[in-house]
Amino acid sequence: MRTTVRWATTLGLTATAVCGPLSGAALAEPGLAPTALYAPSVLVLTVGHGESAIATTPERAVTLSCAPRPLGTHPAAAPACAELRGVHGDFGALTSHEGLMCTKQYAPVVVTVDGVWQGQRVSYERTFSNDCMKNAFGTGVFSF
């Protein structure tokens, strides 16, 4: 049941994030060329407490669109998009914030990412040992 709720939430947010910007294109005047062509980059990020996404109900979900400009419900969309562009959308290549001290308390936090990055389907899941470690990793991307 939890997996069904997670996927329904993810698909609903993805559809909203993808279709919202596209609806403006239909309103453009006929005969006008688009000002810029870009590959879509629309992501839905979720976070929940638990050891895996299957056994965890998302507690928060945000959208992040990075093209043509950063927008979405992510609280730091511009820095998150810049950070993702720096690693070419490879969430595994994001690094931890240097010098940040975190406790060794074990309170697992699961982050998932589903969507499209520059036209390619993306699905990512990572479990952090606690909130501090999550916030230190990919400083702008997972800080929501």
Rank of each mutant, 00 (worst) to 15 (best):
M133I: 12
R6S: 06
C66D: 02
L32M: 14
P30Y: 10
F142Q: 01
S143R: 11
T10P: 01
A53M: 07
F91N: 00
L45G: 00
A8K: 13
P108V: 05
C102F: 10
G72C: 06
R126Q: 15
L37K: 08
S65P: 03
P68K: 05
V113L: 05
I54D: 13
V42I: 09
P40W: 04
E83W: 06
L43Y: 03
R2W: 10
L94C: 09
A136Y: 02
P21I: 09
F137Q: 02
P40T: 10
G115A: 03
G119V: 14
V44Q: 02
G119D: 10
T112L: 04
D90F: 12
G48I: 00
A61C: 12
Y124F: 15
T127Y: 04
T3V: 15
V5R: 11
E98D: 14
P70C: 12
S23D: 09
F91V: 07
V87G: 07
V87I: 14
L11F: 09
Y106P: 00
F128P: 01
V42M: 06
Q120Y: 05
V111A: 10
G20A: 12
G92H: 14
A80D: 01
S52C: 12
R6G: 01
P70E: 07
T127C: 11
A107Y: 09
W7L: 05
S129Y: 12
K134D: 07
L11I: 10
A77M: 03
S65H: 03
A25D: 14
A82S: 12
P70T: 07
H49Y: 13
L84E: 01
C81N: 02
C66F: 03
G89D: 06
A8T: 14
A17T: 05
H88Y: 15
S41T: 13
A36I: 15
T14C: 01
Q120P: 03
R69W: 11
C132R: 12
F144M: 15
P21H: 08
G115K: 00
G119S: 12
A78M: 11
I54S: 11
Q120F: 12
E59I: 11
T10C: 05
F91M: 06
Y106G: 00
G31I: 10
L13I: 02
M101R: 07
E59G: 15
A15G: 15
W7D: 04
L11E: 10
S143C: 08
R85E: 13
P75A: 06
R2Q: 13
L13K: 00
R121N: 07
A136E: 03
E59L: 11
Y38D: 10
K104P: 00
A80P: 00
V18D: 04
A26G: 09
A82C: 10
V110N: 00
T10H: 03
R2T: 12
A76I: 04
F142L: 13
D131F: 11
A26Q: 13
G24H: 09
E29W: 14
G115I: 02
T112D: 05
